[in-house]
């Protein structure tokens, strides 16, 4: 089962976990990303806004989910990404992989979040002290994605 959701709605962890656990397998690995306040010289992040490329974003996430299913024996893959405005502490992304045993589930979960960071068209814009700025891509994310190639 592949579940990909790109939506402005809050991410409902209990509902997503229930779906991931409904596959009758022994292991579910998950990752949840939260919006950081990330204190900086111009103050904390007040709001974070996520822009995406409708259609292409969902296709990229489905492509990653399929690649994970090819690389590991998985019962299910879930990728939920929030878009639009959000505040520090709120969930921005949730990834889950379920399998018979923990090894495949844990590796697939790490693969999904690492590659999502570099392969899916999302752009973050943060507002600090009333001023908005686009977030720059990080080289550390490219390095993390490369370890799966």
């Amino acid at each position: 089962m592949i579940r990909v959701v790109v939506s402005p709605a809050n991410i409902d962890l209990a509902a997503e976990m229930a779906l991931a656990e409904a596959n009758g397998v022994g292991a579910v690995a998950t990752f949840t990303g939260l919006v950081r306040a990330d204190p900086g010289v111009v103050g904390d992040v007040e709001t974070l806004e996520l822009e995406h490329y409708p259609g292409a974003t969902e296709a990229a996430l489905e492509g990653l989910a399929c690649e994970a299913q090819t690389r590991w024996s998985l019962a299910s893959v879930t990728v939920v990404h929030r878009v639009g405005p959000m505040r520090p502490g709120e969930r921005i992304v949730f990834v889950a992989a379920s399998s018979r045993h923990r090894g495949a589930a844990l590796d697939a979960c790490a693969f999904l979040i690492d590659r999502l960071k570099t392969d899916a068209p999302f752009w973050k814009r943060e507002t600090r002290s009333g001023t908005a700025a686009w977030v720059e891509a990080r080289e550390a994310d490219d390095d993390a994605a490369r370890r799966w190639t």
């Binding site: 995406h52 960071k117 392969d119 068209p121 999302f122 752009w123 973050k124």
Partner: peptide
């Protein structure tokens, strides 16, 4: 996703954007 030297023959839609920053 393509590199900038990719051909556009027959393309119906071309998108330009900065490096992505999701997750």
């Amino acid at each position: 996703f393509v590199s900038l030297d990719a051909p556009i023959e027959g393309a119906r839609e071309v998108a330009l954007f900065p490096p992505v920053t999701g997750g």
